[in-house]
Design a protein around this nucleic acid. Sequence first.
DNA 1: ATACTTTATTAATTATTTTAAAAAGTATTT
DNA 2: AAATACTTTTTAAAATAATTAATAAAGTAT
Lengths: 405, 405
Amino acid sequence: MFDKQTRYKRSIVKHLYFARELSCADLSALTQKSVPLTSRVLNELIAEGVVIEKGYALSTGGRRPQVFSLKPDLMYVVSVAMDQLITRITLLDMHNNYVGEIERVELPLGNNPEALQQLTHHIADFISRTAIPIENIVGIGIGMPGFVDVIKGVNHSFLKTDQGSIVSYVESALGIPVLIDNDSSLVALAEQKLGAASDKQNVMVLSIGWGIGLGMILNGTLFRGHNGFAGEFSHIPLFTNNKLCSCGKSGCLETETSLLVVVEKAIRGMQEGKLSMLQGLSLDNVEEASNAIMEAALKGDRFAVELFHETAYNIGRGVAILIHLLNPELIVLSGRGSLAGRLWLAPIQQALNEHCIPKIAENTEIEISSFGYLAEIIGAAALVMEHYDTIKPISGKAKSSLIVS
Amino acid sequence: MFDKQTRYKRSIVKHLYFARELSCADLSALTQKSVPLTSRVLNELIAEGVVIEKGYALSTGGRRPQVFSLKPDLMYVVSVAMDQLITRITLLDMHNNYVGEIERVELPLGNNPEALQQLTHHIADFISRTAIPIENIVGIGIGMPGFVDVIKGVNHSFLKTDQGSIVSYVESALGIPVLIDNDSSLVALAEQKLGAASDKQNVMVLSIGWGIGLGMILNGTLFRGHNGFAGEFSHIPLFTNNKLCSCGKSGCLETETSLLVVVEKAIRGMQEGKLSMLQGLSLDNVEEASNAIMEAALKGDRFAVELFHETAYNIGRGVAILIHLLNPELIVLSGRGSLAGRLWLAPIQQALNEHCIPKIAENTEIEISSFGYLAEIIGAAALVMEHYDTIKPISGKAKSSLIVS
DNA sequence: ATACTTTATTAATTATTTTAAAAAGTATTT
DNA sequence: AAATACTTTTTAAAATAATTAATAAAGTAT
């Protein structure tokens, strides 16, 4: 792709992005290269205006190190987070701050042959409104539900296209490098690079949403499996409940644990006349309903708390299997459901006590993410920067002139 | 540990060990180094007598490549495979052939405070009888059951020692580098490096024995988890059968699937008067009993076949979980139980059909290992050679002069 | 004030790759 | 059947990349 020098240069930019500030010695240690080499490359990057000097850090017993950082407003990443109904688009600078607002557009993925075209149009529209020159956009990271083949750049569930891949379609339309991944994987990437799992080697990141997703950090890297389908946590056969799952089987974990299940149970409970501060829940607006239930539970509403207890215990049974198989050091609860915070912890812990060999489980912590609903957005940007040293530059301009600047 | 040059030299030796024969161009590609560099190092190795030229390979459209190989009788590896009762010791040369016989000694691990001492003595004794000079022994690889911490070199279940590690104990006694690992991990390593899983990136290796072990090859390397406890497949909670497991919990996979369970079921069946060519089975000699049942089943004995069917189906339920979580390209059935070969396949496949999302399962093959009971022996040797480029040489001679040469 | 750390810069040395050319083969054309 | 065009492997020479070593600078600890 690039020659060695350029690759090392980009590798330094990448490290600075994720760590925000680093000294020359830090970079030398991180990249396993010598200090003089690192120093020379840093000076080149400063001359190019990519890197800036931020002054001196405190001494650790010797001369104080010069600290380097990326110039925030020279390069940008477009981050796209999709779910089956809503797509969020935003622009992030090199310090990982939004430029402007997060844009929300309705874009139904199910049974929508024009979804890819619409998506491309929305992104193009968004970019032109930011008024950032295309040359300054490093890449576009897109997270989406479904079976995503990261290498081929296709999604086996949604956004299907006649010929070629999603990646090549968007790239040739916009003239900017594109990277796609599964939504759960991106949540995990966000936690690993910038969140609760940073500096950890083996972490399971659960994203609790309308389904329940799993992203696995194994040996310090996001694990995808042979075809990119790894982490199908929600469809492991765990129950004998005869509830039909969306996947066609029955007894999947997903049939008993997700925010959707919580909402359904809540509605059924209300109909049966359970006492609660909740009212007027409806499946027509699950987002509102699930937020209401989370709020009520956090305020102590007994019925709402019980809903979480049952769901969380079942997640815990699944987590017990994860711990036995993969011996992680940390389990992170992320995704929109993590707003319910500590309500998940106790029942999950109880399930672990019942179903885990103590020797293994005692080495595994559980944490709630602080990213919540933003995790996928952060992850999509991280996806782009994670590949900054191997990304392929798009040859030539955008074929269609969707972007008016 | 070593300087760069020595490390590259040893890395080439390592590649030659696992591949047996390679050309200079092959090695250059495998190690990502240039051909001239590789060529120079090869010539040095030839001058040292470590590598020999084996003549020319067939042309693939151009000049025929010179093929290189290790000199088989210059270096040796001691391979030790332990189970809870029997320990096997053997010596392997650089072409992975035994020198002499595999030695079998009784060495009970449970409740035996002197096990480590006895093990060391047996190895020392074995080495002195081979009459190979200690300098020519690259290392000792030891596979053992239990929770093995590979980094610290200790076993949390067996072979406990007051101070220090198993590794340091044996090393200082014998003066030879020692590497230990969990038995199931070594079976997986054997399959990856020299067996059914070679050149595969994501493989689950099940070793069916008195328990049921799992070794995971993920992204091309053996995965151990945070503390080295990954792969506890046999204790995932999968049944509601109230059968107490050795781990203290109930409902573990192991309570329904292992060769031990097969033998127990067979004995119970015989007592109930089931028709079969089997007779005189006893739990006092499970090894003999399980061999007899495997033989009978392979000969078509209906009762014996049924025993396998039930056990294999339950394994299949566990495998379905593995496939969903880790999306492997291959499942290998290895260990002593793999002698029953194809008997496992159909019931496992049936379980997968019932419990897997087709899209994922269709990308996963299942194979029977050809190593059988030898897998752990081969894996222990592979463990040593796998670390040949980073192994630490033991400083000084053996402290105790256990070895008389 | 002295000894010890850590970081930064420069020069000298070493390691590695690239380039070029030769050697040894296969495949295709005349 | 001979000539040629194209491959792949091997070796040698030249160019480049990267590290090590040495020194200086800037700090902490005693």
